[in-house]
């Protein structure tokens, strides 16, 4: 079904609308299996100091999530300033042979992990000037989302609830405003807890959903990855199909004509 309904980000066509993170798994084998089961084509990774003294033969994340199979989306998780985020993206571009698609997130606060929108705007400006294609994590503020689009971000990714909280879509009306007003893809990033949350995001008309903890934090991550894949597809189809109008009272599904009682 999704052959005719691609997601296009920065000119590249994707057939899955589920984007997944690669963090919080028990081991790389679980990462590999869950990523495969999700059907995702875009996988986020973090950039961190190389572990000096680690076994040189040890497998590496990019061995189980290879660059020739997936679009690797380096993030700036853990950055609290525009400077740190820009530095991280430049290292990521060097690390990934000039790959310039990045997920920008600049955080404001450790407890909520809410974005620091002021620093995010600064970082986005620098990165776009420097040739990066920026997918940006932000609040569900329509004006900020529009500003990020106007600056040239290739996708705007409002949170649905705090990162890793699994609280679901707390702000469907705000998310819908953003979807209605923007031309670039709008993806829910953060807050999804289970399959129905993902379906709700897609039913709102989101172009995609990015998640990590909802899969990695499930009791069976591989099975949850499969559930999420289906929820994203079901939600997208429901959105395209156009749901029935809500009514106050019942409306019989069987005809009343021809009753014999």
């Amino acid at each position: 079904m999704n052959q005719n309904d691609p997601l296009i980000i920065a000119g590249k066509t994707y057939h899955s609308r589920l984007l997944v993170g690669s963090g919080k798994y028990q081991d790389l084998e679980e990462t590999r299996l869950a990523t495969e089961a999700s059907g995702a084509e875009i996988i986020t990774v973090a950039i961190r100091r190389t572990n000096i003294g680690q076994n040189p033969g040890e497998p590496n994340l990019l061995d189980v999530v290879p660059m020739d199979k997936y679009t690797i989306l380096p993030n700036t998780a853990g950055c609290y300033s525009a400077d740190d985020a820009v530095r991280t993206c430049r290292l990521a571009r060097e690390l990934l042979d000039g790959h310039d698609l990045v997920k920008l997130e600049v955080l404001a606060d450790e407890k909520t992990l809410f974005p620091n929108v002021l620093e995010t705007l600064k970082a986005a400006e620098t990165l776009i000037k420097d040739g990066f294609k920026v997918m940006v994590y932000t609040t569900d503020d329509l004006m900020i989302a529009k500003e990020l689009e106007a600056m040239g971000c290739v996708a705007v990714m409002p949170l649905a609830a705090p990162i890793g909280s699994g609280l679901g879509i707390r702000n469907p009306y705000n998310i819908r405003f953003i979807i209605e007003e923007l031309k670039v893809p709008v993806l829910v990033d953060a807050g999804v807890g289970t399959a129905s949350d993902a379906a709700i995001a897609m039913e709102l008309g989101c172009d995609g959903v990015l998640m990590n903890t909802a899969i990695a934090g499930a009791k069976n991550p591989v099975l949850m990855a499969s559930a999420m894949k289906k929820a994203i597809e079901a939600g997208r189809e429901a959105f395209l199909a156009g749901r029935m109008a809500r009514k106050q009272y019942a409306s019989a599904s069987s005809p009343l004509d021809g009753t014999f009682f």
Binding site: S22, R49, T50, N60, L61, A92, G164, T213
Partner: peptide
Amino acid sequence: IEIVSAIGGG
């Protein structure tokens, strides 16, 4: 000097 790699992250 900073030497970095890609690791799991969301």
